Simulated assay, not measured.
Amino acid sequence: MSRFVNVALGQLGPIQRTDSRQQVVSRLCALMREAHALGAHLIVFPELALTTFFPRWYIEDEEDINSFFEREMPSAATQPLFDLARELGMGFYLGYAELAQEQGKAVRYNTSIIVNRQGEIIGKYRKVHLPGHAEHEPWRRFQHLEKRYFTPGNHFGVTPAFGGIFGMAICNDRRWAETYRAMGLQGVEMVLIGYNTPVHNAPAPQHDDLSLFQNQLSMQAGAYQNGTWVVGVAKAGLEEGVDSIGGSCIVAPSGEVVARCITKGDEVAIARCDLDFCAIYKRTTFNFDLHRRPEAYGLLVERKGETLAADGTAVGVLNAP
């Protein structure tokens, strides 16, 4: 019997700096209600979905920086989203800036969570591939200071959810083959990805016209080469003077795009995804056990179901709730 999950793209238009958490959560709830009316079991929201994309500014005041971060999840401002998920019996993926306490020290992460149909957090991921730069670069029209404001995560895990094996990634992660392969080695059947991607690439403006093409290319390749569904969702449009791509889409294990958003605003699109369709690729063309030659690559070794970097750091481990 096939395992179907009705997945909705919960694309967001711009969020301005003056928009409150309550205003944004109200928009997220509206998208969730629309998706539910279309029969969705799960809605995927973008990276840093609760605020404007603040790494575009060089900020020195710690209190100002921390105002963009969540100290707990759910918080008072985001609780309505969890309550609505429970009421509708619908799950969601949400990206946000996390201010964590580790060994008595505050640590900032670019984080996403997956929430089940009972409104419970069942998985958390912290962005591994942080793009941009760490210091102020005045020559840029806008900054990209993720390396300044975030600590990188250290693994890609998978989570049993919605009758299958789910994984998470965030924005720049989608460009790296290792992202999908680390989860593919754990049997992932659907990868959820939120992103904020400006049209303009300051260090390489010749790439600007290729932004949408390369966004979709990376997700299609990751899906096909690992026999998994990939769901990519943007925060798009003109936000604080910076134009960001849209292109939210759902990619099948065949590499085919089966649903997409067509605007740069708040928009819902939906696809009925058969998780058993992954097996057609995992058992044939991309049967890792039968055809893959990790001993020839020199970069990764495998041990007891884990994928380890050459230095022994785990890059693929179970992401338990």
Score class of each variant (00 low, 15 high):
80 P>V: 06
102 E>G: 02
129 H>P: 01
111 T>S: 15
56 R>V: 07
130 L>G: 10
62 E>D: 12
143 Q>H: 04
132 G>A: 11
119 G>T: 07
60 E>G: 12
69 F>V: 11
79 Q>V: 00
133 H>R: 14
86 R>M: 05
106 A>L: 13
97 A>T: 10
76 A>I: 14
116 N>F: 09
117 R>T: 13
138 P>E: 03
126 R>C: 09
79 Q>Y: 08
134 A>H: 10
90 M>W: 07
89 G>V: 02
95 G>K: 03
133 H>L: 06
104 G>L: 04
78 T>H: 12
91 G>N: 03
134 A>K: 15
114 I>F: 01
96 Y>G: 00
121 I>Y: 07
103 Q>Y: 13
61 D>A: 13
112 S>W: 04
78 T>C: 13
135 E>W: 10
118 Q>R: 13
141 R>T: 00
132 G>I: 08
112 S>A: 14
59 I>P: 03
98 E>C: 01
146 E>C: 13
145 L>H: 05
68 F>Y: 15
87 E>W: 12
143 Q>N: 09
122 I>L: 01
129 H>V: 00
95 G>A: 02
102 E>H: 11
115 V>Y: 09
74 P>S: 01
99 L>H: 09
119 G>R: 12
99 L>V: 05
72 E>W: 05
124 K>G: 04
95 G>H: 02
78 T>K: 13
69 F>H: 11
